[in-house]
Write a protein that binds this DNA or RNA. Structure first.
Lengths: 204, 204
DNA sequence: GAATATTTTAAATGAATGTTTAAATTAATC
DNA sequence: GATTAATTTAAACATTCATTTAAAATATTC
């Protein structure tokens, strides 16, 4: 009987996820993963055939973690201001939950773009959310500044994600402790909410 | 006589810079560098003692490339709106000139923060630029929203840098060609300028 | 409960890693 | 131009890498 009830395959997957997120593909060795999972080195290849295959499987999962909640919010039937606010709050809590996620995804994609996108469905979903219609209507009746979702979404997401993605450099730059960084991030969040809403929505 | 007049040490440094920027520390081998420099493998250690030492030297240079021009602009004697505009333009052209720079710095710092900051002078410079005084004066006479440089600077820099840092994912996400991405980035630049200025400066 | 299939193990594989060596070549010094 | 110093070279170094092997241990099937 095992102390940890999970199946070996899942234990390796979860361990690999933790290590890849922390060290990236290049910085991770098969032995790192085996050690983190507390399993024999040969099992990685027994279950996943290669480090590359294991990585691709995990990457796909994490890409969904990164985008899915945003897509869900973009499809909600609430007004645009509330939607922006919710995306920012959601991004914020995602960054706290998974502080390595964005830099991991950005870095792996940057290094080898072609390698990582066998399944485009998550991107298709993102290109056709309900907010697209809302923006068009808002622009038509003059309440919203003419803007595509392609322009709006990065304006929203970049601000929160960038400070977390560069958390260590921001801490160093402004001489912040971990605690002070938390406070700083909260301040920033409020600035962003107001700044983006003010810019997007015309009138009082 | 050599065809390339540079000294060997500089050739290796420049080659290493290119490779490190492209592949990161973990993804780069000593042989990659030697091949890029078209030099014997042993010379890397002859001139720089180790891959790590060579990397640290290059990293320090690149950190300065990343921050120095921004510091210079922050110290200029021009009004705040012009300053913001200039920082954005400068960041934009830096991203076009050095598309790997930001993701490289962010990723290396993220993976091992303690390793990379032996010299803090560039950070000290950034914390005490002329714009600090400008902001304080603006807040005092009611023309500027109460905000620290610590909050303002990321609001400005994140927007431009994030879309370039995630260029490949943005291209994939919005199904853009390289050409279309350029156009998209230009649009985004104008949005950011207006959005940040509108937010920071109170009144018409 | 014997036969079969699945999972786990320790050990080995060959290639790639960062680094060093010692000899060969080139440059500088006197 | 001989002697010394600096540079470059090919080869080797010990480790570590991802992956494979074949045997052992465990589960499953009949």
């Amino acid at each position: 009987m095992k102390c940890i009830p999970e199946k070996s395959e899942d234990r390796i997957r979860e361990a690999a996820k933790r290590v890849f997120l922390k060290k990236g593909f290049d910085g991770t060795t098969s032995r790192d993963i085996a050690k983190e999972a507390d399993m024999n080195i040969a099992l990685t290849n027994y279950y996943f055939r290669s480090k590359e295959k294991l990585f691709l499987e995990i990457f796909r999962d994490l890409l969904e973690v990164y985008f899915q909640s945003t897509i869900d919010i973009l499809n909600k039937d609430i007004d645009i201001k509330a939607k922006i606010s919710e995306i920012i709050e959601n991004d914020f809590s995602m960054m706290k939950r998974e502080p390595d996620l964005v830099i991991f995804i950005m870095n792996e994609v940057h290094k080898a773009p072609g390698r990582l996108f066998p399944d485009m469905s998550i991107f298709k979903q993102l290109r056709s959310t309900y907010i697209k219609k809302q923006l068009e209507e808002g622009v038509a009746n003059g309440t919203v500044r003419p803007m595509q979702i392609e322009n709006l979404l990065p304006l929203i997401k970049c601000s929160i994600e960038f400070i977390f993605l560069g958390k260590e450099i921001h801490k160093e730059l402004f001489a912040l402790t971990d605690e002070e960084f938390e406070k700083y991030a909260e301040e920033q969040k409020e600035h962003i909410k107001e700044m983006v809403c003010n810019y997007l929505v015309i009138g009082p």
